[in-house]
Simulated assay, not measured.
Amino acid sequence: MTALSVNLNKIAVLRNSRGGNEPDVLRAGITCLDAGAHGLTVHPRPDARHIRADDVAVLGALCRERGVEFNIEGNPFAPPRPGYPGLLALCDAERPAQVTLVPDGDGQLTSDHGFDFARDGDALRPLIAAFKALGCRVSVFVNVGDPDVARAAAVGADRVELYTGPFAEAFAAGDVDAARAAAQTACLAQAAGLGVNAGHDLSQGNLPHFLARVPNVLEVSIGHALIGEALYAGLDATVRAYRHIVDAAASP
């Protein structure tokens, strides 16, 4: 079965554009869980452009209360700064079920590439061990087509998250084989004992195709498209539509 985790960053973007507390990320999280989301994802960045450290605490408490997965994404190499205690400190405080490590920088509009394990592997290994010592499952962001994806297991990761931006772009352009590379990368990872998650630019339009062709995806994390679709259909209805897609993918 594929779990649906809703990324709430875009709710925080809207809130931060005006200040105050509207739209309320906690209310959005409650709505998503009430509609059937299996968990919530946040990606607090050091520049606090959307989800902030105080949001992490509030949503972490909600997920603990509901007994659902809380997934915190972030760059493990980013140093603390005022308002951002660092990814390890956030996870130490909240003890999320999963931490997803992503090699993004302040200047990036969004996460757009995975780790280079030849370059980053030695530095990742002790950090992954530190997150796992907190009881977190560790997933690392990887590029589809990365021939070294199995090295994620060697540095201690439990899962990889496939960066699906290129898949979504190819699918939108009409490529009927858009998911082939993702399927091949997933199989390489699974052969190394890694679980496979996926995320970035997944939508109601492309998710059924992706799940039908990429085997044994354990979790999809979806935010941008889901929140955009919710502007027209409503958040409750949109989350329920995504649940229908992931549930249908699990049916024989």
Results as ranks from 00 to 15, higher is better:
residue 1 M to R: 14
residue 2 T to M: 11
residue 14 L to A: 15
residue 15 R to G: 06
residue 15 R to I: 01
residue 15 R to Q: 09
residue 17 S to D: 05
residue 17 S to V: 00
residue 17 S to N: 08
residue 20 G to Q: 07
residue 20 G to Y: 07
residue 20 G to R: 05
residue 21 N to T: 14
residue 24 D to V: 02
residue 26 L to I: 10
residue 30 I to R: 15
residue 31 T to W: 03
residue 33 L to W: 02
residue 37 A to G: 07
residue 38 H to D: 15
residue 41 T to E: 03
residue 44 P to R: 04
residue 45 R to A: 13
residue 50 H to Y: 10
residue 50 H to G: 10
residue 55 D to C: 04
residue 56 V to R: 12
residue 57 A to W: 03
residue 63 C to L: 05
residue 66 R to T: 09
residue 70 F to A: 08
residue 76 P to Q: 07
residue 76 P to K: 08
residue 78 A to R: 07
residue 80 P to E: 03
residue 82 P to Y: 06
residue 85 P to T: 07
residue 87 L to I: 02
residue 88 L to H: 13
residue 88 L to K: 04
residue 88 L to T: 01
residue 89 A to P: 07
residue 91 C to I: 06
residue 91 C to Q: 07
residue 94 E to F: 01
residue 96 P to E: 05
residue 98 Q to D: 01
residue 99 V to A: 13
residue 99 V to L: 13
residue 100 T to N: 14
residue 101 L to W: 09
residue 102 V to C: 11
residue 105 G to R: 13
residue 110 T to Q: 09
residue 110 T to H: 07
residue 120 D to P: 06
residue 124 L to R: 10
residue 127 L to A: 00
residue 128 I to Y: 03
residue 131 F to S: 07
residue 131 F to D: 12
residue 133 A to G: 09
residue 134 L to Q: 14
residue 139 S to N: 13
residue 143 N to P: 02
residue 144 V to E: 12
residue 148 D to H: 12
residue 150 A to F: 11
residue 152 A to I: 00
residue 157 A to R: 09
residue 167 F to I: 03
residue 167 F to R: 06
residue 168 A to E: 00
residue 169 E to P: 01
residue 183 A to M: 07
residue 186 A to N: 13
residue 186 A to Y: 12
residue 187 C to M: 14
residue 187 C to T: 15
residue 187 C to Q: 15
residue 195 G to Y: 04
residue 195 G to L: 03
residue 198 A to L: 07
residue 199 G to H: 06
residue 200 H to P: 02
residue 201 D to M: 02
residue 206 N to R: 05
residue 209 H to M: 01
residue 211 L to G: 12
residue 212 A to Y: 08
residue 218 L to K: 11
residue 218 L to F: 00
residue 219 E to V: 05
residue 220 V to E: 12
residue 228 G to D: 11
residue 231 L to I: 12
residue 234 G to E: 04
residue 238 T to V: 02
residue 240 R to A: 15
residue 241 A to F: 01
residue 243 R to S: 00
residue 247 D to I: 00
residue 248 A to Q: 14
